[in-house]
Design a protein around this nucleic acid. Structure first.
Lengths: 209, 209, 209, 209
DNA sequence: TATGAATGAGCTTTCATTCAT
DNA sequence: TATGAATGAAAGCTCATTCAT
């Protein structure tokens, strides 16, 4: 028996549905923000009825939470992978770090999530807290620690290592936000890997004694 | 009976009303975002009735637009002032630029506006366009031009001058966003002037041949 | 290993399904009322899927109707049995009638049905009509007739025989409603057989010339 | 300036609105029950928009509560008035009590409220508790006490005074329920004052030694 | 100019009913 | 016969906007 040509009215896809809904919700939330996102839009983009969403999520907030949490996990993984790799020298560590981050920023929808975190932090403080505690502090902390260690070895000039760390990664964040915010209205985009490569070399030159 | 300090006996003149409404609206929009902001809240914070708002603004969007435009003007002014002052050397120019920007970032509510621009860019592309065209491109362009000129004089190493410019000011933007997003949930704040001073010196060292 | 008492190993035959559904529906309808009853609850309590209900009943209203009708039949039977028995004297007739009714009221779920009839009479007039025409009028009519006959024989004082009948059986109805309504919130219950015995003797003393 | 002939779109009646809404809600709730009552119906019957209801009540449940509470108060008043009047003899006390109750039952919408209390007791136990504690127990208790006192004086035969009390007032309750439930589908109504007068005389004859 | 009660369109959520399996 | 995922038509509730005062 072959599949019917047309689309059946009902599809039984319990296993896949939640992910499809979360994927659709991510797009809508990233585009509109939480409050302006309409369940109708999410349902339509997920290809399900509005009611079907409530088979998997109790409230709109629950969907939002699932979207955000889904955005945390892969980045956690990236972070762990980065920590496992242990390049010889400090400059190589920084270069590797920047390269991976630039790649992630360029190829994943992390920009949309960052936009959501920034835009909804006040309405959903828990969301900001999760991102801060589980992703940002570990990442920034690891970078800061590496810088401080290099300073202790005399490889890096004195100065607040946390400020050095912020100076290193900020262009990446700004580049991502730029892409989400200004590129859609005609702004010239940034080539993030190229930008980061130049930036890291400049920083390294500036940081060594 | 003396007048209470907070509540002037003489009603403020109607001429002030629009500004008061815009000020209140700015707070609410910055906190909640456009869609989640309620006219009731804006009215209450402005100390007027909900109906009164409609004597000055036709729609909620109009209020939002006024808020955004009010946020553009003073920064335009800052920009012009910066351009008027003409320090002798390239490093001094950069130092002056960074200092003014860090001061503005630390002492004005620009963070709230930036959050709004980022969060609502998709819903109000015109808003993103205005900010991009009238503030960001001029500022970034001026900085990029100064860098390119310095490169032409051999004072700065080769490299994409726009990337250099982005590398210079990004920490400021990130610092402001950090303050709006993570500080309220307990994150350690950044001392923006100190961060920028260290960052600029590092960058300058890295940029010279 | 012996079979658990509550869970027969051999699935009940499909022939029993409708009755099980009606039984479950009765509980839910009596507890929540028609509108607030959820098909999910009925299905869960009947131990079947929601879809299975629609193999036996076309709509929620049909289930309700089945519940009500199932509640009418046994009482009709009681009534007929009562009419068949023919005690010698009028007082004995009344005593027998009250005794049977008190027993029924105490041992059957008639209270829940009465609650449903009262609560849903306006939404389902047909339901009220059925109960009125097939149960109440025959019962009340028989009682009224017996009283009128006794009056004709001079055994009972003058007076509206229908009012006498209402005066005789009302406490039973109130007792049942009381049990459904106030006992669950802590009210002192009534011992219906005792109440009726005392009430009938009092009424008989008051009704004789 | 004369009033416009047509009905103005907006009426400003803040003071009257809540009562109008409660009155409309009472009708709808009494007719449909809580769950089946629709805010649209209540609004339409009150002559306001759905939104206007929410200026005065936060939720549908709050409206329901207001309806019930409004039904308790006047009856409390009746009860107090009854207690204040102190007839000479026990029979006169009972006659007065029955007369007032029959009048109330015949002329007020108490039937609708009783129906609601019975129908929604399980969904809103607090509602049943309020009625039980504030109205029924005091009323039934006062009657029971008067009977017990009369028994102590030898004016009434032995027997459970609470059962006597129930036997006395039950026909009233049944009469009210009858009117709400069966009269609308064609049942012959009861003349409550006449029924109660005959019932009370019968009871009194039966209760004296 | 100013108010705030009132509106009504639109939102999230529920649930009786359907249908592919 | 039986399932339960899916549907979609309401339902309760919100809030930008209007208008009588």
């Amino acid at each position: 028996m072959s599949l019917p040509a047309g689309q059946p009215k009902f599809r039984r896809r319990k296993a896949d549905r939640p992910d499809e809904i979360v994927a659709a919700a991510f797009e809508v939330f990233a585009e509109k923000g939480f409050a302006a996102a309409r369940l109708d839009d999410i349902a339509a983009r997920a290809g399900v009825s509005k009611g079907a969403i409530y088979l998997y999520f109790a409230t709109k907030e629950d969907i939002f939470q699932a979207v955000v949490e889904q955005g945390v996990a892969p980045n956690l993984h990236n972070l762990a992978a980065l920590a496992a790799a242990n390049p010889q020298t400090f400059p190589d560590l920084i270069r590797a770090f920047a390269k991976v981050m630039a790649h992630v920023a360029s190829t994943t929808p992390i920009g949309g999530i960052i936009k959501m975190v920034i835009g909804e932090a006040r309405n959903f403080p828990e969301l900001a807290r999760v991102w801060h505690d589980r992703l940002i502090v570990p990442a920034l902390g690891a970078l800061t620690g590496a810088i401080a260690a290099a300073q202790a070895r005399g490889e890096i000039r004195p100065g607040d290592p946390r400020h050095y760390a912020a100076g290193l990664i900020s262009p990446l964040l700004v580049g991502v936000i730029w892409r989400e915010t200004f590129t859609p209205v005609g702004a010239e985009p940034f080539d993030l890997p190229a930008l980061m490569e130049q930036h890291v070399e400049t920083q390294l030159r500036g940081m060594v004694p």
